[in-house]
Amino acid sequence: MSHSVSRPRRSVLFVPATNDKAIAKLPQLACDTVIFDLEDAVLPEQKAAARDRLAKFFAERPQRAREYVVRINSLKSPWGADDLAAASGWATDGVVLPKIETPRDLLEANDVLDEADAPDTLKLWAMIETPRALVNLAAIAELGRDPAARLSCLIAGLNDLAKDTGVMITPDRRYLQPWLLQMVLCARAGGVDMLDSVSNDFRDLDSFAAECGEAAAMGFSGKTVIHPAQIGPANAAFSPSAEALAEARAVVGAFALPENASRGVISLGGRMVERLHLVQAEKMLARAAMIAEMTGDEK
C-alpha cells in the first residue's frame, strides 16, 4: 500500500492562548488537533502575555499523537512578526496564517521560518477568509505540491468571508456552498487538507452534526470547532463508518484473490469495481488505522 494518507484532522479545536482553564482540560479531550489562537481570541493588551503562555506550553509539550498548531496574528499587524519568530522556535507542528490573500503571503512566512532554521516538520496552514484569497485559491493551494513551501492545510473562514462579501450564512449554508466546494477542489488539486469553518452555535449539536455530515460529503478533511461538545460529532462525521470499512475490506480482499491479480475490473456483490476503488479502499483502511492508533481504539 504505497498511497500516502494525511494524518486525521477530523476535529480541530480553537483554544484562546490566554485561556489557562481550557488549556488545562486538553488532555481529557478527543480532538485530533489543537489550534492555539493568538489572533481574534486575544485582546491587543494581552498579545505578549499570550505568546509567553504558549512558549511555556511548548517547552513542556505533552507526548501524544495530537497535533498542536498556533494561529498567529497577521504579518501585517503589529504582532505578527514577533508571533512568527517565536513560533519558529517552539515544538509546534504548524503555524496558521490568518487573512492570507496571495501565494506571496505564504512564501514570505516560509522565508522567515527557513531563516530561523525552523524544522521541516513545522508546516504552514492558511485561513481562507477574504474574497481575494478565494479568487487566488488555486495558486495558493498549488504551493502544497512544493514540499519546500511547507503548506499542509487550508481552513475555511466563513465568518470573515460573509462579512466582507455580504453573503448571508443561512442554516443550510446554501449561498456559500459553491465557494465551499471550490475550496475542496483547489485543496485536492494542491494535495493539501481542507478544513470546514467553525459553527458559531455550539448549543445546537443536532444542526452541527448535520453540518459536519454535509461537509464530509463535500470532501472536507475535517471541521474546526470552538467548543468541546462539538468534538464528538465532528469525529463521528469524518471517521469511516463500520459499513464503509467492511466494504473497503471486501474490495481489498477481492482484488487480492489470485484470479483477480491481473484484472482491472471485477464484479463484487453485483457491482462493477475498478482498481481506482481499490486505491480508495486502501486509503480508507489506512486512515482508519491511523485514527485507531491516535485514539487507542480497537477497530
Rank of each mutant, 00 (worst) to 15 (best):
V12R: 07
L13M: 12
L13T: 10
V15F: 09
P16I: 06
D20K: 15
I23S: 05
I23N: 03
I23G: 06
K25R: 15
K25C: 05
K25I: 07
P27N: 08
A30P: 03
C31H: 10
D32I: 01
D32C: 02
V34D: 07
I35L: 10
F36V: 14
F36K: 10
D37N: 09
D37F: 08
D37Y: 05
L38A: 03
D40G: 07
D40V: 12
P44F: 02
P44Y: 03
A48G: 04
A49W: 04
A49I: 13
A50S: 04
A50G: 05
A50E: 11
D52F: 05
R53G: 00
R53S: 13
K56Q: 15
K56T: 14
F58H: 07
F58Y: 14
R61H: 04
P62L: 08
Q63P: 09
R64K: 04
A65K: 01
V69G: 07
I72R: 02
N73S: 10
S74V: 08
S77C: 13
S77H: 06
P78V: 12
W79D: 05
G80P: 00
A81L: 15
A81E: 11
D83L: 11
S88V: 07
G89N: 10
G89W: 00
A91R: 04
T92Q: 03
D93R: 02
V96D: 14
V96E: 14
L97P: 00
K99F: 11
I100P: 01
R104E: 15
D105W: 00
D105Y: 00
L106D: 01
E108L: 13
N110V: 13
D111C: 08
V112Y: 00
V112E: 06
V112H: 02
L113I: 09
L113F: 02
D114E: 15
E115W: 00
A116T: 10
D117W: 09
A118T: 11
T121Q: 10
T121P: 01
K123F: 09
I128P: 01
E129W: 12
P131F: 06
R132V: 15
R132W: 06
A133C: 07
A133G: 10
L134E: 15
V135I: 14
N136D: 11
A139S: 13
A139G: 03
A139P: 12
A139Q: 15
R145D: 02
A148W: 00
A149G: 04
A149N: 08
R150L: 08
R150N: 07
L151E: 05
C153T: 15
C153A: 06
